[in-house]
């Protein structure tokens, strides 16, 4: 490994560790939900196949992509827990904004925890739909981190 590669590997490891910590922290502080980290698996492609997804690109010292995917009912429940709005009163825009902000806070926290200079985040993108599949070309290998909230799964895809 060259010195440059070693440094890149260090950045990547720091970001991944920060990411796991931050996902847990965001759900706990904003949504009053204790989630547990289940582990990670390599994935061939960056494919988010869920009803509620938030995506953020990373540019600069390291390029990458982070996506959060949850079922619609869980997305609604989380937005309700964050804002105090009862689930039936949550409109599509609330759900989309809530999921985008979730992704935003997760990436911001990851960046701060890793303490790496020169990383910029793109504005978050939310994808809401019954059969939406988001496929993104990425430069780096893709990992899927899995978290559980009671019996529901939260998937965080990361290519970094």
């Amino acid at each position: 490994m060259t010195e440059h590669e070693q440094m890149q590997e260090q950045i990547r490891a720091g970001l991944l560790e920060g990411l796991i910590q931050t996902v847990i922290q965001v759900f706990e502080t904003m949504a009053w939900s204790r989630i547990t980290y289940q582990g990670e698996q390599p994935r061939k492609h960056f494919v988010l196949a869920s009803q509620t997804c938030g995506l953020i690109g990373i540019r600069g010292a390291r390029d990458g992509l982070v996506g959060v995917a949850l079922d619609r009912h869980l997305g609604l429940e989380i937005v309700s827990r964050i804002t105090g709005l009862p689930v039936p009163n949550i409109e599509l825009e609330d759900l989309a904004d809530g999921i985008a902000e979730l992704a935003n806070m997760i990436c911001g926290g990851m960046k701060a925890k890793a303490g790496i200079h020169g990383l910029d985040l793109t504005p978050p993108l939310a994808v809401i739909g019954q059969d939406a599949t988001v496929h993104w070309k990425t430069a780096h290998p893709v990992r899927e981190l899995t978290f559980m909230l009671d019996r529901d799964i939260i998937r965080v895809l990361v290519s970094i």
Binding site: I82, T83, G84, L85, D94, D97, G98, E101, N104
Partner: peptide, 11 residues
């Protein structure tokens, strides 16, 4: 720019 955050802060 996030209505979620604006709502949380309003609360």
């Amino acid at each position: 720019d996030s209505r979620t955050i604006r709502r949380v802060i309003s609360g």
